[in-house]
Design a protein around this nucleic acid. Structure first.
Lengths: 341, 341
DNA sequence: TTGTACGCGTTATCAG
DNA sequence: CTGATAACGCGTACAA
């Protein structure tokens, strides 16, 4: 029994040529006669030759592998985005290594280091807060990089995201137009662009109508379902609590909804609810959820395309900050009800 | 400016020793004096040495990479399982390459081939139907393999799954105990063990109560939301349609619910609904969904552990079919209501 | 304890 | 057009 897969040497022997020649016809470069092309391809088929990508990578310094570092594949937005990314990657023959940061910069750092050691050709990352020195160094070294969902201040690399401020603004304006003024908000993580921008949209909508922001109504839910659950309970415990709540992502929307139901509050009668992210189940909820929808799948595809463009280009001529910002869209269903006036 | 990362040769030069020696202290094998250990580690730090995993892999034939090939990362069950898998893998220093088959054997075959070319150390796969010859060959070649969620007949490799028949049996028995007899079922894909077993549970529960199976009530939803949506519409269009529906996975549960709502049927009053898989949002649905819950995250962790055990063991002594079968649990909420008697 | 040298399987260059 | 041969960076047997 042979030990492993057959190599170029095996093909060469079988075809009765040198391994260099075999490599050329199989790699389709250099020159060779039609005669040898036949002999070699036939031999390759016979010995079931399959190139050793490890050896090839060692030589070419290219791995046809990209890393994707996101907060949590488990949430609707990220799994959908990852799917779009993986589909595009596969189309181009790239493999994708999945990493979940849980919004922890220590995890981020560790995964980043690992991915670099593995010589990925590029990286799409949704950076968390914390020390970005490492990431900046990678960018400086011209490792193909694309940021998704959020950017980092002062780091000029391609990014694909949605206009978060606008999406949040639309959501909150919708609430205000329905007569709400005491609007609770479940923020993500302070310092994360996505979160800050959504909060800015919230502020903008309120300011525009001269509604003052009540600090007690703004809670940091850390993008997490459980945190949002607790925060919602706190909101409900207030003397003069919110008449509406804006949850800044899907896990928090779920947590909020769970808390609301557990407390027996009627939606939208007692409190209206609107969320960022539009999971497939939003129409099935009780009541059907009004949300801000993001084109997550498309974002994943775009992220890969932006990355592939960098990988394909010579390191010197890489555009520094091609940015794609998509529009979120308000999906009006039932959870905000009609006017409460 | 240096061209790339520094190598063993660089640290060796810096430390004033041979690269072989440097390799040994950094790899911590063989023998060397305390003196050189200091010199070498210091040099490594100075030149920011980081091992080239490609070269190492070429030499050791090990990549510390595993592939995970599942139907669709986008669904609740799979994203949760993948998360458990990735977490465990990271703990042990393994990277995971994500592939989505969409239940297409051609995709499966292509991804499998790619993963093998990349020399993954192991593979966890949820095989779809179709030609399994390729997979069998890999198993025969002793590539570490673990099957998740479903097995393949006659292929003795470790597997982790849930007792699908029992879960489905419990679900349908629950429906029957509430007085339902015309129970519609949204099956997955005929031939996929998961689907067949769940259907077997359905049959068993009915047979036990001497309720005959009406072919018109069983629909193949292909595990897909949209297919289930249409199938549900067909069920609703029947002259004497179902009084209850059992959706065999989460996407189909969603599709079914969507169709039911769109048609204005009241749940459970007009038709009761129960699903396999218990997504986080199940309690938020209208009405809260009664489901069969699977320990997806744990299954992912276990799958990796089973794989790691094989990777760690010498190829000759690999246990052939350690199988883990977990218990699903019935989560009774509101979508089946009380007795309809 | 240390250094040398070879091989892993490619890609790619350079004579012939 | 073809065959040798040199890297790529690491692991490791073997000699010193």
């Amino acid at each position: 029994m042979r030990k492993g897969r057959s190599t170029l040497k095996d093909v060469a022997r079988k075809a009765g040529v040198s391994s260099g020649l075999a490599g050329r016809v199989l790699g389709n470069y250099g020159s060779f006669s039609e005669e040898t092309r036949r002999k070699v391809t036939r031999a390759a088929r016979l010995v079931q030759y399959t190139p050793n990508t490890i050896a090839r990578s060692l030589r070419t310094r290219l791995t046809r592998t990209v890393g994707v570092l996101i907060p949590d594949i488990t949430s609707f937005f990220w799994s959908t985005l990852a799917r779009g990314l993986q589909d595009r990657a596969a189309r181009d023959g790239f493999s994708v290594i999945l990493c979940n940061s849980d919004e922890e910069s220590t995890n981020e750092k560790a995964y980043l280091a690992n991915l670099v050691e593995r010589s990925v050709d590029g990286l799409v990352i949704s950076p968390t807060i914390g020390n970005h020195a490492y990431l900046r160094r990678l960018a400086a070294e011209r490792l193909p990089l694309v940021l998704v969902d959020r950017r980092i201040r002062g780091l000029a690399v391609p990014a694909v995201r949605v206009d978060n401020r606008e999406g949040a603004y639309d959501a909150v304006r919708h609430l205000i137009s329905l007569g709400h003024e005491r609007i609770g908000v479940l923020k993500g993580i302070d310092g994360v662009e996505t979160s800050d921008e959504r909060f800015a949209g919230y502020e903008q909508a309120l300011a525009e109508r001269r509604i003052r922001i009540r600090p007690a109504l703004v809670k940091e839910g850390r993008f997490l379902k459980d945190q949002a659950f607790r925060a919602t309970q706190e909101l409900l415990a207030m003397r003069s609590g919110p008449t509406a709540i804006f949850a800044c992502n899907e896990p928090m929307l779920t947590g909020c909804l769970l808390a609301l139901k557990e407390a027996g509050v009627r939606i939208p009668h007692d409190v209206a609810l609107i969320g960022f992210d539009d999971p497939v189940w939003a129409p099935c909820a009780d009541p059907p959820l009004t949300t801000v929808s993001q084109p997550a799948y498309a974002m994943g595809m775009l992220a890969f395309d932006l990355l592939a463009a960098q990988i394909g280009a010579p390191a010197s001529s890489r555009r520094s900050a091609e940015e794609v910002v998509l529009k979120p869209t308000l999906m009006i269903r039932k959870s905000c009800g009609g006017s409460i006036a």
